[in-house]
């Protein structure tokens, strides 16, 4: 297939992307194609460029060169964070960031898919459908009991879940999830894998994670990043038997 044909049918298409910070090549010739509906796990050592890749996709960081296309046609490098979010790319951060002085329910309400302009939100009245959706999400992320708590008072794991709930509320086409199980207990980690697999039934998901048990639980295609480009790609068994991968990542 030609590059154009590959891009055409993809949800996310990165081709030969470069980005350096003060001469340090954080992303160095990165290419990656995600099919619609696909779930992908991304692993790689610290500093491999996983978060920077998400920054580039979501408009936080501009690449120095290379193509970044969404749904085969939208050039993401020409849009800012808010526009990209509205197009349908949602993101969970490595360090959980929720709105601490808002309640759990308000955090979800802010994320709910709705008009985003100041004059729309100024006169907005929460509809019954929206309350129902918030209740559903609260049940999914097991925070029903905490709905009127300030987000600041949640535990670390609960904040991670709330952030995933906010992603759900946005109803994005593509979810980028950066280290969702960092700081979670084993039980919570297993629950999160189940939750993400459920989300992946309807939406495309890219998950960055170091936790190998978790990646195994997901059971999806894995991409290994190293020094800003793809080192290996395939099922977890295939990549984890790859000698290069063992050397830079798993073997340490």
């Amino acid at each position: 297939m030609t590059d154009a044909a590959i891009a055409e049918g993809s949800l996310l298409y990165l081709d030969n992307v470069h980005r350096s910070f003060d001469g340090f090549k954080a992303i160095n010739g990165l290419s990656l194609v995600l099919a619609p509906g696909e779930m992908r796990a991304i692993i790689g050592p610290n500093g491999a460029g996983k978060t920077t890749m998400m920054d580039i996709i979501t408009g936080k960081t501009r690449p120095d060169s290379g193509d970044v296309l969404f749904e085969g046609r939208v050039d993401l490098t020409r849009h800012d964070e808010a526009e990209i979010a509205i197009m349908g790319i949602g993101r969970k951060f490595q360090k959980p960031t929720v709105f601490e002085s808002h309640t759990v329910a308000d955090n979800l309400e802010l994320a709910l898919r709705a008009k985003r302009g100041p004059f729309s939100t100024l006169v907005h009245k929460t509809t019954r459908a929206e309350y129902q959706r918030i209740d559903e999400i609260l049940a999914t992320i097991r925070l029903t009991e905490r709905r009127s708590w300030l987000a600041a008072n949640l535990s670390h794991g609960q904040k991670q879940w709330l952030e995933i709930g906010m992603l759900l509320a946005q109803e994005p086409k593509l979810l980028l999830v950066d280290e969702p199980v960092a700081g979670m207990t084993d039980d919570e980690t297993a629950e999160t894998a189940i939750l993400l697999r459920k989300i992946a039934e309807t939406q495309s998901v890219v998950v960055v994670e170091h936790d190998m048990t978790f990646v195994r639980d997901l059971g999806v295609k894995v991409t290994v990043l190293h020094e800003g480009s793809v080192l290996a790609e395939g099922s977890l068994d295939v990549v984890s038997s790859n000698p290069k991968v063992i050397e830079v990542y798993l073997g340490r």
Partner: peptide, 10 residues
């Protein structure tokens, strides 16, 4: 409280 987070939800 979290300006950049607000951008990322649109």
């Amino acid at each position: 409280d979290a300006e950049s987070r607000t951008r990322f939800i649109g």
